[in-house]
């Protein structure tokens, strides 16, 4: 107790003069901060921090690859810290700039940069996707479920693979249709094509469709709602987009991660290193609210809660596609 009091007093003493406000800055990825998905979640986290502390932040939306290094350098030189880069595409730029400015604190989402002044935050999307896959298998009457991904990259295949494992765990005989929207970044912003892909899966019998496709997913959820079947949202809680027609959403708490980095930096608790946010850490989860209450039966809830506990305890391991570029189930 005494030691605590001393260290608290010391911390207060140290914190007092050091409490010059932090000057945070964020670079959003090409999707832009209002992409209704990944970048917007980061934006919401920063806004939440700003609301609580009154500390403003600088921001920049990346347009081309040369700007990644330029923006980070510029923020670092202007004395900003921490500087948060949103998205794995900033990885190599951040690595260079962070090495150049060892006294500036950096953070990056969805990528690991191994430097003493960088905090890397990655998510176990496969774990969250497993849970919504499990729910999809149980909610499906036809035994056929769908997945619509955005751009065909390993990260999105990781969502697909976790989902497929969850579906098979829920119903071994279930059939899974998988489609990727495209091969360029535009695939994350093409709701029309998302709707088309969803309709084709519905025509083949799918009655629950999960998307990991950013804004493209808006079309997927719309098509599912129009056909009176169920969609599953991603990243943010999208249950309210079509109440009663969205089974659940796979939450990827980028907002929490961003707010955490900022808060920790503000309280002098910031640490470098890799932060892996899985189910156990509250980094991914499935969304339940009033909009989907009626869709989740007691059996489903019990099953998903058991799976969740098993994954947290380590008795169920969800295979990570990115570990070996393979998926055990299709």
């Amino acid at each position: 107790m005494k030691r605590f009091a001393v260290s608290a007093a010391l911390a207060a003493f140290v914190a007092m003069p050091a409490h010059a406000q932090i000057k945070p800055a964020i670079t959003f990825d090409v999707g832009g901060k209002f992409d209704k998905s990944f970048n917007e979640a980061a934006y919401n986290g920063a806004e939440a921090f700003k609301k609580k502390t009154g500390i403003a932040y600088r921001e920049f939306e990346i347009q081309n690859d040369a700007q990644r290094e330029q923006a980070l350098t510029r923020f670092a030189r202007d004395g900003h810290s921490p500087i948060i880069a949103i998205g794995f595409s900033n990885g190599s730029a951040l690595k260079k700039v962070a090495a150049e400015f060892p006294n500036v604190r950096f953070a990056i989402i969805d990528f690991v940069v191994d430097l003493p002044n960088v905090q890397s935050i990655v998510f176990k999307e496969h774990e969250g996707s497993y849970l919504v896959g499990l729910l999809a298998a149980q909610a499906s009457k036809s035994g056929k479920v769908g997945f619509v991904g955005g751009m065909d990259i390993p990260l999105i295949r990781r969502f697909a693979c976790g989902y497929a494992q969850g579906v098979k765990a829920g119903k071994a005989s279930a059939e899974i249709f998988q489609n990727m929207t495209g091969t360029t970044g535009a695939a994350f912003n093409d709701p029309l094509k998302g709707g088309e892909l969803a309709r084709s899966q519905i025509a083949r019998g799918a009655d629950v469709i999960y998307h990991a496709a950013g804004n493209t997913g808006a079309g997927v959820l719309r098509a599912a709602a129009d056909a009176n079947i169920l969609g599953i949202g991603v990243d943010s809680n999208q249950n309210g987009m079509h109440p009663g027609k969205v089974l659940t959403s796979m939450l990827k708490r980028v907002d929490v991660a961003v707010e955490k980095v900022l808060t920790e930096a503000n309280n002098n608790q910031w640490k470098a290193g890799v932060t892996v946010l899985g189910l156990a850490e509250g980094g991914v989860d499935w969304a339940q609210d009033d909009n989907n209450k009626a869709l989740i039966t007691a059996d489903m809830r019990a099953a998903v809660e058991k799976a969740s506990a098993d994954i947290k305890a380590g008795t169920v391991k969800v295979h990570d596609y990115m570990a070996d570029q393979k998926c055990p189930v299709q």
């Binding site: 190599s92 065909d152 091969t183 360029t184 990115m322 570990a323 570029q325």
Partner: peptide, 25 residues
């Protein structure tokens, strides 16, 4: 060309375990 580039980067050039679809330096 875009599809070819994605295929090459995702399945051929990318070092295993790397998140970003890009070749090694």
């Amino acid at each position: 060309a875009s599809a070819l580039l994605v295929y090459l980067l995702v399945d051929v050039f990318r070092p295993t375990g790397m998140m970003e679809p890009s070749s090694r330096v």
